[in-house]
């Protein structure tokens, strides 16, 4: 039974110039204990998936179709009150991009974590503070820093505080959106370490969203690659990285330089990401693909299971009737 099962999700944004097809027929599933990486360029819709799951869409976003099944409930069908009470932060929590800037500047960090616990659970203040201190220990900041203010902490510490806050109510699933983007490389490594330790200790299920494939390779055991609002390939991390089937995935992986191993030629993908107002016909990647065929221009490739637990949407691989 997957923990989170997203089926045919369609979510568009309304702008003055029309509907932007941000999330177009996206399906994937996360099992318990998985760390699932959602990768793609900026603007491909990966953050929108997270926002839709947590009902944090801006007012011009509208879900047109699909189901998000979490623990036998379709999250999209729940009313707002139930969602707030039961799901948000208690079952699914999140750490957003640039989260360290979301800390209240005039409140102590310990108090902020306590506040989030008290907001969602009915416990006494002392108990909440105890739990907050334990969380701070868990992420490596230490209970001694309970009374510090955010400006006294470094960037990495602030990010770890946000991770602690997301774990406040022992959620089943944590969504992390670009957790290390604004951080220096060593600090980022420390944060990645914390994430990996938490995964092991708490058997945490994680949805990690990032444009950095190296980060995803380090932390995730399942990967999905999104392009222009659609999932083009997803499956086990090893098979995706070692035996990528979609041309985009291959080029994307080769666009990341490696500090170890042989120095190889970096690949680059010509052209620019498409405008989601009027996406390309057929396969959305075809204008930039070196192997585009006629059918790629006309028809959208279906998602097929190429190998065991390795799904891809590309006419090169198959799917022709």
């Amino acid at each position: 039974m997957p923990l989170l099962n997203v089926k045919n999700l369609k979510m568009y944004f309304y702008t003055l110039r029309g509907w932007v097809k941000a999330v177009d027929n996206v399906s994937f599933s996360i099992e318990k204990g998985d760390s699932f990486g959602l990768a793609g360029e900026s603007g491909c819709g990966k953050t929108s998936v997270a926002l839709t799951t947590l009902r944090l869409l801006p007012s011009n976003g509208k879900v047109f179709d699909g189901k998000i099944i979490f623990e036998n409930m379709d999250l999209l069908q729940l009313d707002d009150k139930t969602f707030d009470r039961k799901i948000r932060w208690k079952k699914i929590s999140t750490v957003f991009q640039g989260a360290m800037n979301s800390l209240h500047p005039t409140m102590k960090i310990g108090d902020q974590i306590t506040e989030s616990i008290l907001a969602h659970e009915d416990v006494s203040k002392e108990e909440a503070e105890e739990r907050a201190k334990k969380l701070l220990d868990l992420v490596g900041i230490g209970a001694s820093r309970f009374d510090r203010y955010p400006h006294e902490l470094s960037g990495g510490m602030k990010q770890r505080t946000m991770i602690a806050m997301s774990l406040a109510c022992n959620p089943d699933l944590v969504i992390l959106d670009e957790p290390t983007t604004a951080l220096d490389v060593i600090i980022a490594a420390q944060v990645i370490n914390v994430i990996k330790e938490l995964q092991k200790k708490l058997n945490l299920s994680m949805l990690l969203i990032s444009h950095d494939l190296s980060l995803i390779a380090e932390t995730c055991n399942k990967v999905a690659i999104m392009y222009a609002g659609k999932i083009v390939e997803y499956g086990d991390a090893v098979s995706i990285f070692k035996e990528s089937l979609h041309p985009y995935t291959t080029k994307l992986i080769n666009a990341f330089p490696s500090v170890l191993g042989r120095k190889t030629e970096l690949s680059s993908i010509r052209g620019f990401p498409p405008d989601l107002l009027v996406p390309p016909s057929g396969c959305r990647f075809h204008p930039r693909c070196d192997y585009a065929m006629d059918i790629c221009r006309k028809e959208e490739p279906p998602v097929i299971e190429a190998n065991r637990e390795h799904y891809v949407a590309c006419w090169l691989v198959g799917g022709k009737k």
Binding site: V185, I192, D212, A217, F241, S258, G261
Partner: peptide, 9 residues
Amino acid sequence: AVPVPDPTG
């Protein structure tokens, strides 16, 4: 500290 784009690496 630099992550490597290789899950086996």
